[in-house]
């Protein structure tokens, strides 16, 4: 029998929620380990091996020591998968990029002497692909378990994973939700990549754009909608800060 690919799961600056989603596959974990060997996954197991084919990496890169570790992971792995908003695009960790790293440190740690301590040696937050090449992206905060499964099975079958390039509205409409705008709320669904099954608006919470923008916030159509709903560019800018700070729209082919 062909040897199963060896998979390792790693994390950087994150909440580990996306890894938890993998752990939450529950009995389907048995299906997963039928097609891959999991050799490292700190959140759920003690064993660790540096011999792996596929690295699944959660979290964003905040410090030189992170960068070094990520490069080493990249060197070990044939395939690198970015897992979740922090890894794919920087996510909430990029909110910090509004300020200079030194100012942030001062705000949080005051006058404490952090010199020479590499744990506190932070730079502006980066997504994984700002440091190393990334082969596959699993978007979301947290990721969608079904999409995780479809990406893994696609890789196992040698297919290109099908990640939607249309907005959340498509899935939201299929769920027969009342539009958040109709409810007087303000939602990023129309400009955010689908694939989450519109989970937030389906549970009556507007989209925060955690899977990345597929349209710039300053395109004509967005302006038109903001005008129509008496919102300002400032409203959308602030909403986009949560997950998409400093990020342009995803390219069509990303």
């Amino acid at each position: 029998m062909k040897q199963k690919p060896r998979v390792a799961v790693f994390d950087f600056a994150d909440c580990e929620g996306c890894e938890l989603e993998i752990a939450d596959l529950e009995e389907e974990v048995l299906d997963l380990i039928e097609i891959v060997d999991i050799v490292s996954f700190r959140e759920v197991m003690k064993d660790h091996s540096d011999d792996y084919d596929i690295a699944i990496v959660e979290g964003s890169i905040m410090r030189p020591m992170d960068e070094k570790r990520l490069r080493s992971i990249r060197n070990h792995a044939k395939i690198l998968i970015a897992l979740g908003a922090c890894a794919t695009m920087g996510g909430v960790n990029k909110i910090r990029n509004q300020w200079m790293p030194e100012d942030v440190k001062k705000e949080v740690y005051g006058t404490a002497d952090l010199k020479g301590n590499e744990l506190f040696d932070v730079f502006q937050t980066k997504a994984l692909n700002e440091v190393v090449p990334v082969d596959y992206y699993i978007y979301g905060c947290p990721i969608d378990r079904d999409e995780f499964k479809s990406v893994i099975t696609a890789i196992a079958l040698g297919k290109k994973p099908e990640i939607p390039r249309y907005p959340v509205c498509v899935e939201c409409k299929k769920n027969e939700n009342i539009c958040q705008f109709e409810l007087g709320s303000f939602c990023l669904g129309p400009i955010t990549r689908a694939g989450c099954k519109a989970i937030c608006p389906t549970h009556n919470s507007p989209c925060e754009g955690c899977r990345g923008l597929i349209k710039k916030a300053d395109t004509e159509c967005v302006k038109e909608v903001l005008d129509r709903y008496k919102l300002s560019y400032e409203d959308i800018r602030r909403r986009c800060t949560m997950y998409n700070y400093g990020r342009k729209e995803c390219s069509y082919d990303e």
Partner: peptide
């Protein structure tokens, strides 16, 4: 917005896509 909400809610829009869904 290119969101296709108009076609999703339309009673006379009946175009479809076909996808494969493979078990884990």
């Amino acid at each position: 917005m290119e969101c296709s909400s108009c076609t999703m809610v339309c009673p006379t829009c009946f175009c479809y896509d076909v996808k494969e869904d493979v078990s884990l």
